[in-house]
Design a protein around this nucleic acid. Structure first.
Length: 405
DNA sequence: AACACGGGGAG
DNA sequence: CTCCCAGTGTT
């Protein structure tokens, strides 16, 4: 009997068993499914009605009024779910509203230029999401004639939509009984069953999806899935969880064993690599030299200033900068001044970016490998999608240019 | 299983 | 600073 809860030891009617075994089972070894014995999943299934009732009641009283909760329109749900991938609710709020204002329907989205879609995504990160949304919109208007699929496997076949997102969309928009597992529910489920292993492994994932499935109601799955996430987000937080107000504390193994803070275990993070880069703002008669990032590099599809890695961490000689710009853009330049240094982090790199102002000497921009390099009026920079860092660089030009007039 | 992919919130 | 976030796709 693997599902043990000290809180309910006195309550045999809960069907929860001998607590003396509890300490011994709190280890990843104990979580293999074994036939012929009671499993964690079966214990969760036994308690599902109670857990659902408590979670739904909590959700009714504590749910946040979020923009994407105003509707069950599949298009809106889809956009919100993509934006929420690895992105916090607070960050998504503003982007969601302006994106829907720019592209009110899937037809509008499909008809738009990819650059226009990326511009709406500017600063949100994971820009592949924007390109995939755009590609999927064109697929939907094409093969589905603008009508969204209802089948979860059809959604999953679309770019950018995996198991979580597909489940979220069909459960929320169509109220289909499809489970979800994401960051909040992962944490909450792991604590609920006292799982001390790594939830991201294949076995951990299999376990979590089984729990999601075991808990899932036949009706109202969309609301229930959101209740799970909301409770995980607001109560079962990574640090300092609010166990005193948790609606399912009485079933929580981690609480019973006093190991809430140990679950889930901290991920081992890749080592951070310091990198030194140089960006050059080349200005010529009110225009600035831009290039578009290629598919094989970071920020693909977005625009950037000439930028390259610096060999060492010390300042780069002006001649080296000039030749690097010439190599990358085909334009010969004269380095003028150091503008500023921007520090940012991306993936496993912590980047120190030295930014220089330069003036045009000679040469024409060459677009190698179909990657555009071109002169763009400084006052039009807002029309181009940049990364967050690229936009910081652009903002150095814009006020400067105004000042020159 | 490991990694790339971004940027910001929160302690 | 650190850790984390309504994950997906590729290798």
């Amino acid at each position: 009997m693997y599902y043990i809860n000290r809180q309910s030891v006195a309550n045999q009617e809960k069907g929860i068993l001998d607590p003396s075994v509890s300490d011994g089972i709190v280890g990843s070894q104990s979580w293999a499914m074994e036939s012929g014995r009671s499993t964690t999943i079966e214990a969760i299934r036994d308690r599902r009605h109670h857990l659902r009732r408590r979670l739904r009641a909590w959700y009714r009283r504590n749910r946040r009024e979020l923009p994407w909760r105003m509707t069950r329109d599949p298009y809106s749900v889809w956009i919100s779910e993509i934006m929420l991938q690895q992105t916090q609710v607070a960050t998504v709020r503003g982007y969601y509203e302006s994106f829907l204002a720019a592209f009110p329907t899937v037809a509008d989205l499909a008809a738009a230029d990819e650059q226009a879609v990326l511009r709406q995504w500017e600063g949100l990160g994971y820009y592949r999401r924007a390109r995939q949304i755009h590609a999927a919109a064109r697929q939907i208007t094409g093969q589905y004639a603008g009508t969204f699929p209802r089948d979860v496997s059809e959604w999953m076949a679309l770019p950018g939509i995996g198991r979580y997102t597909a489940g979220a969309i069909v459960s929320i928009a169509y109220d289909q009984p499809v489970p979800i597992v994401e960051a909040n529910t992962t944490r909450m489920f792991a604590r609920l069953i006292g799982f001390r292993g790594d939830p991201s492994t294949t076995t951990g994932q299999r376990l979590l999806w089984s729990i999601a499935e075991a808990l899932l109601p036949r009706r109202g799955a969309g609301q229930f899935n959101q209740a799970l996430m909301e409770c995980g987000s607001l109560v079962c937080t990574p640090t300092a969880p609010q166990c005193d107000v948790c609606p399912i504390r009485s079933d929580c193994m981690a609480w019973a064993d006093g190991i809430v803070d140990l679950i889930p275990p901290q991920k081992k993070r890749p080592k951070i690599i310091p990198v030194h880069e140089v960006a050059v703002l080349v200005v010529r008669r009110g225009r600035v030299l831009l290039r578009r990032c290629g598919d094989e590099e970071r920020w693909s599809g977005l625009w950037d200033f000439p930028r390259f890695a610096c060999a060492g961490m010390e300042a780069m000689p002006d001649d080296d900068i000039s030749s690097a710009v010439l190599d990358q853009t085909g334009v010969s330049v004269q380095i003028q001044t150091v503008l500023t240094t921007i520090r940012h982090a991306v993936t496993r790199y912590r980047i120190k970016l030295d930014c220089y102002m330069a003036s045009y000497v000679s040469g024409q921009p060459h677009s190698h490998r179909t990657l555009p390099v071109k002169w763009v009026p400084c006052r039009n920079l807002a029309e181009y999608p940049f990364s967050s860092t690229g936009r910081q660089l652009a903002s150095l030009i814009d006020p400067l240019h105004r000042h020159q007039r």
